[in-house]
Design a protein around this nucleic acid. Structure first.
Ligand SMILES: [Zn+2]
Ligand SMILES: [Zn+2]
Ligand SMILES: [Zn+2]
Ligand SMILES: [Zn+2]
Lengths: 142, 142
DNA sequence: TTAACAATTGAGATTCAGTCTCAATCTCAA
DNA sequence: TTGAGATTGAGACTGAATCTCAATTGTTAA
């Protein structure tokens, strides 16, 4: 988490981009939330705290965070995206409940094996992955 | 493919829904394309062939196709969705090139093992999955 | 210091995919 | 034949995300 914040700052430096007041506010907010969040949620949390940053800046900064590798953008089959700050876990996926929307995270090193196999087989340089299982959680299956 | 068309018709019957002229046009078009397509592409192909079906009906029918299990909806990190008719391949994923947009399909039974492991571990009933690896294809990596 | 230039921002307009509304039409069983 | 429910198309609408552009801030060179 601490490393990830640093990573973003290094990224900005490497691209000669400023670590502006607004970018700091967003960075801190992102890493103060746990788990997944949506861009609009982030925007409203900031508003509630009277830390006014425009919607455009929120989206722009989230893009930078994604590019820097400290945040990932995920799609759970909805119209909008979700984000999460990247944890140490490298081989991380999600179980998404189709009924209640609950999201369970898992980590499984088989993802790494799969990745290596397919990278080699297809001569592909894999930078990141996205793995979601959709179904019903224990409470929602009848 | 043939089975999948039938599957859709059975689904409609099971829900007392009509296999209307429009639904047939869309079904045929979906299964005449190979690989992935976008809803707007489908709409446009139909227009070119003078088979006029409204945008609303295209989207509505794609939803039905997804529900029937004969088509799947995929997100490759873009704003719009992609669709593909479901093949026999059960454990199927995608390699997406971040530069040229090329999509390579793969099938790997490790996905099945992973699925079973996580289903058991989290007491989850998994209905479907989505697995994408993002990176650079052989032509795009320098 | 100052001038020039580039980066950054916010407000609001715009885009775009997808959904909704609703009146007209179709289907089919009673 | 009637009527309830299913289906459709046109176009209005929505919501997420992006774009525009003028104002502001930061950086560099003279
Ligand atoms: Zn649930
Ligand atoms: Zn996660
Ligand atoms: Zn490529
Ligand atoms: Zn595929």
């Amino acid at each position: 988490m601490f490393n990830q914040k640093k990573k973003f700052q290094e990224y900005l430096k490497s691209k000669s981009l400023a670590f502006s007041k607004e970018r700091k506010i967003i960075l801190d907010e992102v890493f103060s939330t746990s788990g997944h969040f949506e861009a609009e949620d982030l925007l409203f949390s900031l508003r509630k705290k009277k830390k006014r940053v425009s919607r455009a800046t929120v989206y722009r900064t989230l893009d930078l965070l994604v590019k820097s590798g400290s945040v990932s953008k995920i799609n759970f089959g909805e119209a909008h995206s979700h984000y999460e700050h990247i944890l140490e876990q490298e081989y991380h996926g999600h179980l998404v409940c189709l009924k209640c929307g609950k999201i369970i995270e898992f980590e499984n090193e088989k993802i790494g094996k799969l990745k290596n196999e397919e990278a080699k087989r297809n001569n592909f340089q894999i930078m990141r992955h996205s793995l979601e299982f959709y179904g019903y959680c224990s409470r929602c299956r009848k």
